Deep mutational scan, measured.
Amino acid sequence: NITNLCPFDEVFNATRFASVYAWNRKRISNCVADYSVLYNFAPFFAFKCYGVSPTKLNDLCFTNVYADSFVIRGNEVSQIAPGQTGNIADYNYKLPDDFTGCVIAWNSNKLDSKVGGNYNYLYRLFRKSNLKPFERDISTEIYQAGNKPCNGVAGFNCYFPLRSYGFRPTYGVGHQPYRVVVLSFELLHAPATVCGPKKST
């Protein structure tokens, strides 16, 4: 009989979020998941679920829940969905086509923008091939755009693969920082350890 609540607040209220190319993952297990707390949290810009209804989450049990978190621009949030393409979905964070879970995003301009620009948040701009679902690539190898080998030196046709967002408070909404948490639900042939409040007695 599990009684402790799942530590969703640790994920959602973290002081610093990860850059999207180096997205953070927390495994959540052996706890009671009260999703209504999240669902009623006012400032969400997006709360979209795939393969599961957000209002039914509290009735369900899962083997594991993974909480992935990172920061992207407002106009990139739409790429955090199954079957998407674009710089983020291709080179930074890719969801599987059969994704079961929820994508939760909110504007973090007050936290993550600075006058003069916040350059701490990076994304991958160049990559030889697209990421596989949930693949994480933190390499900083110089990207070779031409035929000539770069030998690890940036220059003509040789690019550092990461780019900084440089968030400023005055940017338009599409270019403002958004914090994103992706909850993915794993249902294995194993005992369920993460259940909603109704199922955990």
Rank of each mutant, 00 (worst) to 15 (best):
N1M: 07
N1I: 05
C6R: 02
P7I: 07
D9V: 13
E10L: 07
A14D: 06
A14T: 06
A14L: 04
A14R: 07
T15M: 02
F17G: 04
S19R: 01
V20D: 04
V20S: 04
V20G: 03
A22V: 04
R25V: 01
K26D: 05
R27T: 12
R27F: 07
R27H: 11
I28Q: 01
I28W: 15
S29V: 08
C31R: 06
C31I: 04
C31Y: 04
V32D: 07
D34R: 03
S36P: 04
L38F: 07
Y39P: 07
Y39L: 14
N40D: 11
N40T: 12
F41R: 09
P43E: 08
F44S: 11
F45M: 14
A46S: 14
F47H: 06
C49F: 01
T55W: 11
K56P: 03
K56F: 06
K56W: 02
L60C: 08
L60A: 08
C61T: 10
N64P: 08
F70A: 02
V71E: 02
I72D: 02
G74P: 04
S78F: 05
I80L: 05
A81E: 06
P82L: 01
T85E: 08
N87G: 08
N87S: 12
I88Y: 01
A89Q: 01
D90V: 02
N92Y: 02
L95G: 00
P96E: 01
D98S: 09
D98P: 06
T100I: 14
T100N: 08
G101S: 00
G101K: 00
C102M: 02
C102G: 00
S108F: 02
K110C: 07
L111C: 08
L111P: 06
D112W: 00
S113T: 10
K114F: 09
V115H: 14
G117F: 06
N118V: 06
N118F: 05
N118G: 10
N120I: 07
N120Y: 08
Y121N: 06
Y121K: 06
Y121R: 03
L122N: 15
L125D: 15
F126N: 15
N130V: 14
N130A: 13
K132T: 09
P133C: 04
F134E: 07
E135M: 06
R136M: 06
I138E: 14
S139A: 09
T140A: 11
T140E: 12
E141C: 08
Y143C: 07
N147D: 15
P149L: 10
C150W: 02
G152K: 11
F156M: 14
N157I: 05
N157R: 10
C158D: 06
C158F: 04
F160N: 15
P161H: 02
R163H: 12
P169N: 09
P169Y: 06
Y171N: 14
G172W: 08
Q176G: 05
Q176H: 05
Q176V: 02
P177C: 02
P177H: 02
Y178H: 15
R179Y: 04
V180A: 01
V181Q: 00
V181F: 02
V182P: 00
S184H: 15
F185M: 09
E186A: 05
L187Q: 15
H189I: 08
A190L: 11
A190V: 10
T193R: 12
V194Q: 11
V194M: 10
C195Y: 09
C195Q: 11
C195H: 11
G196N: 11
P197N: 14
K199A: 15
